[in-house]
Amino acid sequence: MAPGGGGGVGVSAFLPHPFFAGFGGAIEFIFNEQESTVTGGKKVGGIEQVLELAWTQIEVSLLALALAILIAVPVGLYFGHKGTGELVAVGIGNAGRAVPELAAIALIAAVIGVGVVTLTIVLAVLGIPPILTNTFVGIRQVDRAPVDAARGIGMTEPEIVRKVELPMAVPSIMTGIRGASINIIATATIAPLAGVLTLGDFILGENVYGADGVLAGAILVAVLALIFEFALAGLQRRLTSKGLRLQAQ
């Protein structure tokens, strides 16, 4: 997204009317600062504001994801290895899916108050269920024969977790992390409701940014989400042993 790279008045000319006409204005909004059409005279849009909001969203999302991983993976590993707490681990996953993000964010804003720290914690909490459940299930589904063999040739329990179960559960754990990332990015998008300005500010602020701003926000959020998804998919590939990939084929 180099400044001027795709900007300019001409963009909309290339888009077939009427379906995609709206996107031209949105792309212009992203690259060129302009006067708000709604609130008179206010400068909105432009690459600078986009990057600022995007950075906030990336920052809280990454922090929240890291926090969620730090909490959920060890807990999932522990209970998965011990083979206890299945109801809790799977129940948390199911319950987590049922929580409406909008209600969560709104309630936090109303009851606790706002700020990056609170938001990060809330996002992390929303990210925990899929990671916890997938880690637990991933460990439980590891083929028992290698684990039995590992114990039989003298690995200690922590060694079994670290050298056998964890590497073999990577695909499942990463699926959980990708699910959490999707939740977190989506919820971070409505974070402006809780007072933290992310790219969602464009989406929720039609009164300031106008229709072009809303669409621009939607495009930017979608792109950001896909960048996270592809990055994590790439990470998953790197972390998954070639032996497991061959086995999956």
Partner: peptide, 15 residues
Amino acid sequence: FAIPSVAFFLLLLPI
């Protein structure tokens, strides 16, 4: 699946 629903909703707006 990866695109946040809010963004998805609004991407459909012009269409």
